[in-house]
Nucleic acid binder design. Structure first.
Length: 963
RNA sequence: GCUCUGGUGGUGGAAUGGUAGACACGAGGGACUUAAAAUCCCUUGCCCGCAAGGGCGUGUGGGUUCAAGUCCCACCCGGAGUACCA
């Protein structure tokens, strides 16, 4: 009987479904293991071969763990809310729910064909009310908590209210939008509206006027990770900075813990590095620079707000942040960002017009312009001066947009000699440059080498060398000087050690329809609907575009108001701002639903809770997470934040959600080209016959009509009408196409659909081939050129069973088996699935050579291959007479004794040069080996009259004799 | 610019510091067949040689070691992330 994959695979897929083979319980005596894939966004295009790569790898590992006796949770679901479905809805008027449903059905059909071991009883869809109920619930918990920096955790906001009533803001160290200062009396005197404003300043989910990434084309705001180079990631539309009232998540409160947590997880260094860079922790000092009051009569009381709280200074001052406090003697000017509050009050009358013009210009510049012209220096002098607190020098204050409002304090001390941006600025405006760090010391005098910085072509930014021209700190190493200067500053009471993060809070509102509604109404301050009323379901709207007044699409909903009497959603016409209030019109962003989905899989049908204590207590967290590295600054940050918060409030039991993470490499497309002659429009020249590439035009050709780079000429003529009369210059009767690695995309005709390959070769071949392509982590172009080889292997494997018998295996056959078991076990453990496939091939070749047909050998082999090629394994397992699934067979163990060879061929080297090979007993000592070599004719020839000075004996590897 | 990766035959890729190129594709040759498909066998890093054999080889140049694709230093070239973050 032939290997009939197209009959056998659907049959076993049905059998698995009917027998609930992949159903997982939350109760088991077995150890638990949780294998998770990043769930897909079901797009209209369906799956391409890149998607299953990670799913196949995780499926292999999940099946392996199960065979090793673990209770394995391996779920799948859909990230179903998002922009593309909505864009499509706007264009076609189709409800996003309808298209999403259709796409999900298509995805499911494709996934089922590949034979995954997902427990579909646990499927989640982020757009379903029973799921997003818990997204909304988590949002409300974030709204109801603040972050206490002293305790380093989230605390209920009710405790903050009690605290304010007791002692005001005194001694409070909490994550907040701005530092507030008030007494208990003041708090008690405030009304509900004022109090809600104050509390909003501390909530972990908060509403604030913040500069956002506004994308006019998409009609929505975007998070930082959704914008690259001033353009939206989705669509590539321009994005501008705009001040808007938006919901945000106070992710920044967790910045330190997000950095620290990276130490505890088993991720690749590169991904950890991506996250560290994104969080951008930098240590340095906050320093107060007093204004030079004498030189500027315009210093107004407004500047008083900048007085340091810890030490009332007699003069107004402002705060800067620096990572190089050691260079404070090199400050020759100060720079404020154009948005800085102090600008108005310090600018002198003479400079006022210029400063105002500059600030206006800077504000109107688009984000893209600003980023594109980074190298262009611009700025203006305010006319005001500050005083360097250590040198008491008078230093000019400038305004420039190279200082950003969102980082640090929006003000810097400029040290042009040791910062490249300050250097460029100083050069451009002719400001003085002063060297305060020397890179080297003169080897003779031992003195640091200084030179005239005005002759430098670039600044000396390295944090190494020795301080010079720095008063009492001169001569110190840079690292020492940093510490010493901060100590001095703290002693003087004009600053302190501090840490700054680049990570910003995540903007959480989207002016879109297809997302989770906020469970918030306005009376007029933001108020949550009662938790027992969740989920607040997404209303129907007449259209999906923004309203005429520019409100989000939910503005079209007629029934979108909250009745506080009945606690139900009622018609907007009922709004009386007394008992019926308007509901929030924005929806949540895509990352809301995907931030906590892994927890929901543990207990997906629970209506009482996000997940039960028992479920999370059993499964703990994800043991293995497989997905693309492109989520490094988005999903993987949000999910960790989400989980840490849930940990703080006692929901999650592990602080980190994903213990081990493997990034599958991106699969690029491999495009094929035909070459059309420039002189004859219907003539196509085979690649090898082209003399000069300038004579031909390369044209993308559908990879589905090309096989091993050979064009199917008939199909090509049918492909497009203009090629119907094509003629070909062929080599050896074939038309050979060119190829190139490009992004997989429809327009390049290089999209490979997994269904076609399953139909042609079977799911098992596809699975093995995707693994055989190379290491899972590595990016690689898709290329079907080798798939035949893998398919041939499966046919060969199948044939091994044709003469199956019960006779005992030979010693050599057993050796092959046990070596294979060991190699496969080791390689699966280290996720080296490509070498596993090779090992199977070697094993099959050896057994075919020895005509092995012993059950003793073939039965364990069937189990070994089951994670990789489950269909054929299941079929053969049943042919071997078993009733149950091969999934529960138990992983075969190897016998270490079977791995030992009787004899081993050692390469023998003299003085490092390979001279000959000697066969020795596998188990022997160094002395025995040398004696055996001496006894051989070749050995005598080399050792004649000499005694070895040194012998390096590496058992089973090599013997190296130094004469 | 900074950070992280990687650089091995015609191709994808193997190699706990120990015979580099496993395994597969492609290519060439052969067997079986009326023929094709399928299957099987041989050759296939480069150079010299009829051969036996010898020489050279893991981006480049140094170093450590009895021994380096692997470890260390410098440089060159790809890929990814990030970008006025003080």
């Amino acid at each position: 009987m032939d290997y009939n994959f197209s009959e056998l695979e659907p049959r076993w897929q049905n059998w698995w479904r009917e027998h609930g083979v992949y159903h997982v319980d939350n109760h088991s005596d077995k150890p638990h293991y949780y294998v998770l894939d990043m769930f897909p966004y079901p797009s209209g295009a369906g799956l391409h071969v890149g998607h299953p790569l990670g799913y196949i790898a995780s499926d292999i590992y999940a099946r392996y763990k199960r065979l090793r006796g673990y209770n394995v949770l391996h779920p799948m679901g859909y990230d179903a809310y998002g922009l593309p479905a909505e864009q499509y809805a706007i264009q076609t008027g189709q409800h996003p729910a309808v298209t999403t449903e259709k796409n999900i059905a298509r995805y499911r059909e494709q996934l089922d064909k590949i034979g995954f071991s997902f427990d579909w009883d646990r499927e989640v869809r982020t757009c379903e009310p029973k799921y997003y109920k818990w997204t909304q619930w988590t949002f409300l918990q974030l709204f109801k908590h603040y972050y206490d920096n002293t305790l380093q955790k989230a605390v209920p906001i009710s405790e903050l209210e009690e605290r304010f009533a007791r002692q005001g803001s005194e001694e409070l160290d909490a994550a907040c939008t701005e530092v507030l200062d008030f007494t208990a009396e003041e708090w008690r005197a405030w009304d509900k509206v004022k109090r809600s404003q104050v509390l909003m300043n501390y909530r972990l989910a908060y509403l604030a006027d913040i500069p956002v990434n506004w994308c006019a084309e998409l009609g929505t705001v975007l998070a930082n990770d959704e914008v690259v180079g001033g353009l939206s990631v989705r669509g590539g539309y321009p994005v501008e900075r705009k001040l808007m009232r938006q919901w945000s998540l106070r992710v920044s409160a967790y910045a330190q813990r997000l950095v620290d947590g990276l130490e505890q997880v088993d991720w690749t260094d590169s991904l950890k590095e991506i996250q560290r860079n994104w969080i951008g922790r930098s240590e340095g000092a906050a320093v107060w620079f007093p204004l030079d009051v004498k030189s500027n009569e315009n210093v107004l009381p407004g500047a008083q707000a900048y007085m340091p709280q810890f030490d009332p200074q007699p003069v107004p001052s402002f705060e800067i942040f620096t990572t190089r406090p050691d260079t404070i003697y090199g400050v020759t000017f100060m720079v404020l960002c154009p948005e800085h509050e102090l600008i108005d009050s310090i600018t002198t009358d003479a400079q006022r017009q210029q400063v105002q013009d500059y600030v206006t210009w800077a504000k109107n510049r688009s984000e893209r312009e600003r980023q594109a012209e980074v190298k262009k220096v611009s700025g203006v002098f305010t006319g005001a001066y500050a005083v360097n607190p250590l040198t008491e020098e008078k230093i000019p204050i400038w305004v420039s947009d190279y200082v950003l409002a969102g980082y640090g304090t929006g003000a810097i001390m400029a040290v042009p000699a040791h910062d490249s941006r300050d250097f460029a600025f100083a050069r451009h405006f002719g400001l003085p440059i002063r060297q305060v760090v020397a890179a080297d010391k003169d080897p003779e005098t031992g003195k640091p080498i200084v030179s005239d910085p005005n002759t430098w072509s670039e600044s000396m930014d390295a944090k190494s060398g020795w301080s010079v021209n720095s008063g009492q700190f001169s001569g110190m190493k840079v690292k020492e000087a940093m510490a010493a200067v901060i100590d001095k500053i703290e002693e003087m009471g004009i600053g302190h050690r501090t840490v700054n993060f680049r990570l910003r809070d995540a903007i959480f509102s989207r002016q879109r329809y297809w997302g989770e509604p906020f469970p918030i109404y306005y009376k007029p301050y933001a108020t949550p609907i009662p938790e027992e009323c969740l989920p607040l379901e997404l209303p129907e709207v007449s259209e999906f575009k923004p309203t005429a007044t520019g409100e989000p699409p939910l503005g079209h909903a007629t029934k979108w108001a909250w009745d506080t009497k009945s606690n139900t959603v009622v018609d907007c016409s009922a709004i009386d701002n007394d008992t019926v209030f308007p509901l929030e019109l924005s929806t949540m962003p895509g990352f809301a639903g995907s931030s906590g989905y892994y927890l929901r899989y543990m207990d997906p049908t629970n209506d009482e809770a996000y997940f039960s204590k028992e479920a999370v207590g059993y499964w703990q967290n994800v043991d293995l997470y497989v997905g693309g590295a492109e989520h490094g600054t988005g999903h993987l940050i949000y999910a960790r934040f989400w989980n840490k918060f849930l940990f703080d409030i006692g929901m999650a039991v592990k602080e980190e959600p994903f213990q081990k993470l493997i990034n599958q490499g991106m699969i690029q497309g491999r495009s094929n080209f035909v070459y059309r002659s420039k002189t004859d429009n219907s003539l196509f020249i085979s690649k090898g016959l082209i003399k000069n590439m300038d004579d031909v035009t390369p044209i993308h050709v559908d990879i589905n009509i090309v096989d091993n780079d050979v064009l199917d000429i008939e199909k090509f003529r049918e492909w497009r009408p203009e090629f119907a009369n094509a003629r070909f210059d062929m080599e050896d009767g074939k038309y050979v196409c060119g190829w190139e690695v490009e992004k997989m995309s429809k327009s390049m005709y290089n999209v490979q659909n997994p269904d076609d390959l399953v139909a042609r070769y079977g799911a098992d071949t596809l699975r093995l081939y995707e693994m055989f392509l190379g290491p899972v982590e590595q990016a690689k172009p898709w290329d079907t050129n080798g798939i035949e080889g893998v398919h041939r292997f499966l046919k060969k494997f199948w044939r091994l069973f044709e003469s199956l018998g019960d006779e005992p295996a030979s010693k050599d056959e057993l050796k092959v088996l046990h070596q294979t078991i060991k190699k496969i076990t080791d390689d699966v453990e280290r996720f080296s699935f490509n070498t596993c496939v090779s090992t199977f091939m070697i094993c099959a070749n050896q057994l075919a050579d020895s005509k092995c047909c012993s059950r003793e050998v073939l039965e364990p082999l069937t189990v070994l291959i089951a994670p990789f090629a489950p269909h054929i394994a299941e079929e053969l397992w049943h042919q071997l007479g078993h009733e149950g699934s091969v999934c529960d067979a138990g992983w075969p163990q190897y016998d270490p004794k079977m791995l030992v060879e009787d004899t081993v061929k050692y390469p023998v080297q003299f003085n490092g040069k390979m001279r000959f090979t000697v066969e020795l007993p596998a188990v022997c000592t160094q002395d025995e080996a040398v004696a055996a070599i001496k006894a051989m004719p070749e050995g005598q020839k080399w050792m004649e009259g000499k005694e070895p000075k040194k012998v390096i004996f590496v058992p089973k590897k090599i013997i190296n004799i130094v004469l």
